[in-house]
Design a protein around this nucleic acid. Structure first.
Lengths: 213, 213
DNA sequence: TAGATTGTTAATCGATTAACAATC
DNA sequence: TAGATTGTTAATCGATTAACAATC
């Protein structure tokens, strides 16, 4: 999380995927250069913030010219680690797990689902695309033998911590957690939570308090 | 978004669901009072922040005692608007749409899915639980006739803005967007985005930059 | 009452924005 | 070269934390 020794704040990190997404759109439109001012207009961050953000990682622009869209897109991809491939497993083969298994966009970005795991005998043996649902009993062994990088937790909240403990024992590198609970995870295992109900409740708050105006 | 005239920051709003979740856990354990200091230990925010956050909405505590768990849980629910019922529709009946339709926890919190919509003839007529997948052509009419509050966009990014425009024309109050794009939406329609790929890329960043240590 | 803990003001910290010299 | 725009430092703004008087 550094350039030399400089710590990058989470606020900056979370803006990077958005930069990349807008740059991809520009690429698709055949635009090959852009200034922070123009980018500001379409992305909604200030030009100053854009320049600050990018300069955390290096001087990607050129005075008087701006930024080369293709090069910047590429650079941000590298910063985000999207030049890597990651092997993933999906734990919990219910609706959400299956939805993620079916969502091929992640695979295009280098996140390759190798297997799914579930405790429900009726799901074991099922295949989502070419991804097999295996018995959770075999998970720890599978992770170690297949060098799995990321575990995606799509179980209910009751099972989530047990699954996390198994993943941690198997030396997983990262956990993407969809279960509506906060997991207890050691510092060296990176975690990212997707708490859907928190997002929905935020919307609910906005609905309630906006309509008062 | 106010108490009197005071504006509540998004940072505070986004912490509210987490307070509620931890309070629910305490309730389940039969704990009926808690101090900001104790809550701080389990939730990970500072005690000072907890008191500041709550005092945006009122003095829910009592000096020398702390907070009543049940009462505070209830209050935060009201602040979040979870004492309301919301009628929702899910647009896009693919894997993700179906996963959300099947996730009964949202329904328990008052978000009632009334119908799903899709353009794919093979999906139209399908029922997820008791929720019918209808032809997207009928969506605008349906929203108006059934007083739908929230539209949940589960289409691909290409269709998302068109769907949003339809929702807006039908006077929807809020949009929960799962499509990987930023939508152009008027200020009076509340929006909450769930950008899964941004979350995954953030995890990727952390994996890459942490392993350098 | 004495102890505990809130509610709230003040201090600090960090993130965003503004400004401008450097330079393409 | 002159104009444009970056990279970077300084100023501002907002959010978090600390401190403590109020009070249960």
């Amino acid at each position: 999380m550094e350039k030399g020794n400089i710590k990058i704040s989470m606020a900056v990190i979370r803006r990077l995927p958005k930069y990349r997404r807008y740059l991809e759109e520009l690429l698709d439109k055949g635009i090959d250069r852009i200034s922070s001012r123009e980018l500001s207009k379409i992305i909604g961050f200030t030009a100053s913030q854009i320049r600050q953000d990018l300069n955390n990682f290096g001087g990607f622009g050129q005075q008087g010219y701006g930024y080369n869209v293709a090069a910047l897109y590429e650079e941000i991809g590298k910063i985000l680690g999207l030049d890597n491939r990651y092997s993933t497993i999906i734990v919990g083969a219910g609706n959400l797990g299956q939805a993620i298994a079916n969502y091929t966009n992640f695979e295009k970005s280098g996140f390759i689902p190798k297997a799914m795991f579930d405790i429900n005998p009726r799901l074991i043996g099922l295949r989502i695309r070419d991804i097999e649902v295996m018995d959770s009993d075999k998970m720890e062994e599978y992770i170690k033998e297949n060098n799995i990088d990321i575990g995606i937790i799509c179980t209910n909240k009751e099972r989530a911590q047990d699954v996390a403990d198994q993943l941690i024992r198997s030396n997983i590198k990262g956990i993407w957690n969809f279960a509506p609970t906060d997991l207890d995870i050691p510092e060296n295992v990176m975690t990212e939570n997707v708490h859907l109900s928190e997002s929905l409740y935020t919307l609910s708050f906005l609905l309630k308090h906006n309509s008062l105006e």
